[in-house]
Design a binder for these strands. Sequence first.
RNA 1: GCCGGGGUGGCGAAAUGGCAGACGCAGAGGACUUAAAAUCCUCUGGGGGUAAUUCCCCCGUGCGGGUUCGAGUCCCGCCCCCGGCACCA
Length: 812
Amino acid sequence: MDERYDPKKIESAWQAEWERTQLYLTCEDPGRPKYYVLEMFPYPSGAGLSVGHLHNYVPCDVIGRYKRMTGHNVLHAMGWDAFGLPAENEAILKGSHPTETVPRYAANFKRQLTISGCAYDWTREINSSSPDYYKWTQWFFLLLHKRGLAYRATGTQWWCDKCRTILANEQVVNGCCWRHTDTPVGKKDLEQWYIKITDYADRLLGDLDAIDWPEPIKLMQRNWIGRSEGAELAFPVAGRPGKEVRFFTTRPDTVFGVSFMVLAPEHPLLNEIITPEQRAKIEAYAAEARRQSEIERMSTVKEKTGVFTGAFARNVFTNKDIPIWIADYVLMGYGTGAIMAAPGEDERDFEFATKYGLEIPRVTASSEAAAPPSDRAFTEHGVAINSGFLNGMPTQKAIATVCKYAIDNGIGRATVSYRMRDWLISRQRYWGCPIPMVYCKGACGIVPVPENQLPVLLPPMKEYQPSGTGRSPLANVPEFVNTTCPKCGGPATRETDTLDGFACSSWYFLRFASPREDRAAFDRKAVDYWLPVDLYVGGAEHAVMHLLYARMWTKVMFDAGLINFKEPFPVLRNQGVVWAPDGQRMSKSKGNVVTPDAMIDKYGADSLRLWELFMSPYDEATNWNESGVAGTQRFIMRVWTMVRRYAEAGAPAGTPSNETLKRAHKTIATVTDHIERLRFNTALATLMDHLNYLAKLKPGELDRFSTETFVVMLAPMAPYVGEELWHAMGHDKSVHLESWPKFDPALVRDETVTIVIQISGKVRDRIEMPVGSPEDEVRERAMASEAVQRHLAGKTPKKFIYVQDKMLSIVI
RNA sequence: GCCGGGGUGGCGAAAUGGCAGACGCAGAGGACUUAAAAUCCUCUGGGGGUAAUUCCCCCGUGCGGGUUCGAGUCCCGCCCCCGGCACCA
């Protein structure tokens, strides 16, 4: 054993050895419980991995190694989320090509992960942009299509001038493109593919209750799905037989107070109902709303505006004709694109009615006797007034009564509305998975590519940049576009859009179970064995989109009988963001990316890993601070010294002192508990504390049990040093194949405890007592204390509160 | 504006309602050394009392209240920081 710790020397040697012995190769083994730990797979960027990435990968690696030591068969693999905007945009920016950059960047990530000592089974590496992967992404799209969950629709979509492409609703941030936050988006009409995720809204919502996820993430998903109960009703358009305005309301009990209606400016009914005098004004307003920057239209501070259509609807409850307006605050994308306005009970309707001098009936009050406030809407639940057959009913009952009345009279029904919209999955981009659809020029229409013709290969293209026409660059490749109809054999064209990158990441967790399977997306037996994922870890920025899409696809697969579970990730945790030392996001453009390479070169991979674990709770955000790495390196050197002293003393096999033994068992108990709860920082602190004790022992007192269990517990966190020291202690087998040490509960228990004595809540003394001492004995000892007597100052205690083995509180 | 998370020494942070600051970083002093580095030892929230760094007291977890024998932790009201969402009928 070398006198000094030299990370460069041991790290490359052990890497080669682990490679040679295929230490991390994983196979199904029915004899052992499985454990599948998965990090959200990264997009391989040219900036390389940062120390921020490792704040996710190192803890997961520790869990993987720990679980292996506790007898689990662990699946821990890595892949690349390589298709999509980020990879394409980065390649464009550098004037290179994603087919060249992606493999290069991925190889660099792999190299960085390997030198960081992360134990992945690299034989399972996957890449979402390789044909043997995206063949099955296409297959899943066809599955969705077959099950009626993929459909084509014309949508008015956001358009970014800089990206020269269409954006999904989710990609519009504050009215600007999410990638060019200074570029307000415009609009373009296109026919595109949608995934009917709304069909799964209720299950996506309901099943949240059964999974172990951080509550804030669940809440964000609930809010995103945005379920609201209410009624869908219809009022006829006055003087237009057969025409009606359908609308959704959460407050059907206020129908008697509906004094006007508002349609979205894009509402298709408009053209048929507006009066000639109003047409010019309406069209100008609608054009304005459409052209308006979304910042303006969505601004909450902006005063409400609207235009009267000239048309009226018949409120079938009051039998009054009420004016129909349009306003940009009513959105076509939610509900039916039309609302009933009950200005007495809704704040926005109140504001609108006040501005335009519309009637404000009052139909809800806190009680039948009370008058509603005159200066604002009464939005709370209460009692119906001025409401015909609803009068006197509390809001809940009135809602139910109106819903029943609506069904009986053919006006509408109780229903549920969702805020979540269907997933627009088409991208007018080159770097994505081609959508396997064909448009027959004959009579067959839209025809799916037969499964045996998959994959539809992405054609090589030199000039792959968005064309700026709104069409995908693939439209410029005639050999790709022109094909024959799979049904009739006649001339046909291919779909030229590619799939949203989120499609690739909606099933990749299945692929790791059988990554080389070429007859199916996955091998059923392997998936039955490995899935669902036992621990899924990633950033909170994926709270809604990725995690909702992956959950939905899983449910579709379950429904299709392909898998036997409904939730892909029963346990989810979020790692905290590591900000740059300056408190900003690490990015290449800001020049503040700290790479693991630099840290490994300076301190060694194990020191870096320990600092990643130690610097903060893994799920909390923190600023990167290099000075701590020197501290964890110092810790490793002290462990090194301890083991060397142990080895030089001839690896004493003798019995340790009672105190040493107790400390060793307590350390095992605490470290185990903290790792199980992913409290890596305190797990390591416990080991440091234990080392502080062991390092003070004389060489002959350093016993085998304490020293060996220490190294075994350190090994998952610092795999190189763990391995080196384990071998230095005379073992031949890898430490990473050892069993996690067990503790003796009898040795963890203490015989005596320190009991805190408080007087009026202030600590005044501490006494040592045998564990389980009865209260009267503790009281007696406490009252005998000189400090207690001094603070009592002759007063008689009124009351004693005793917490067993912890504290005695004296109240005076 | 709404929703969520957070605010503890010079810094990163500990603490099932029960000894606030474990474990580290940085700093100070000392040992070793010709010297330095490394290493090891000691000290390190603020204020005060005392012969006493070792004994004792007071204050202290963003601010103001409250519950409790006891609050960093629970409740109410504010301030600030971070993230998400944007008139959701």
